[in-house]
Amino acid sequence: MNKAHPPSQRYNPRDLSDEELVARAHSELFHVTRAYEELMRRYQRTLFNVCARYLGNDRDADDVCQEVMLKVLYGLKNFEGKSKFKTWLYSITYNECITQYRKERRKRRLLDALSLDPQEEAAEEKTATLQDTGGLDRWLVHVNPIDREILVLRFVAELEFQEIADIMHMGLSATKMRYKRALDRMREKFSGALETL
Rank of each mutant, 00 (worst) to 15 (best):
R178H: 14
R187Q: 10
G134R: 15
G171T: 03
D117E: 10
L159V: 02
E80A: 13
A4K: 12
P118Y: 02
F155D: 11
T133S: 13
F155S: 10
I92Q: 05
D117R: 13
E28R: 08
H5R: 09
D117M: 07
E121A: 09
A122P: 05
C65M: 09
D132R: 14
S191M: 07
R105Q: 12
D112W: 08
E20N: 06
R53P: 01
G75N: 00
K103T: 08
L153I: 04
L151K: 02
H31Y: 13
I92L: 15
C51G: 00
Q44G: 07
K82A: 08
L140D: 07
G75F: 03
V156H: 00
T33A: 11
V72M: 07
K84V: 01
S115G: 09
V143L: 11
L110T: 06
A182L: 02
T93M: 09
V141Y: 02
Y11Q: 04
Y36L: 11
S8F: 11
E19C: 04
G135Q: 08
D18K: 04
Q119L: 14
A52E: 10
L76Y: 02
N12E: 10
D15A: 12
T87Q: 05
G56I: 01
I164Y: 10
A123Q: 11
M177C: 06
N57D: 09
D62C: 02
D117N: 14
R102Y: 07
K71F: 04
R53A: 05
D132Y: 08
R34W: 02
E104G: 05
N12S: 08
N95L: 07
W88G: 01
R24Y: 05
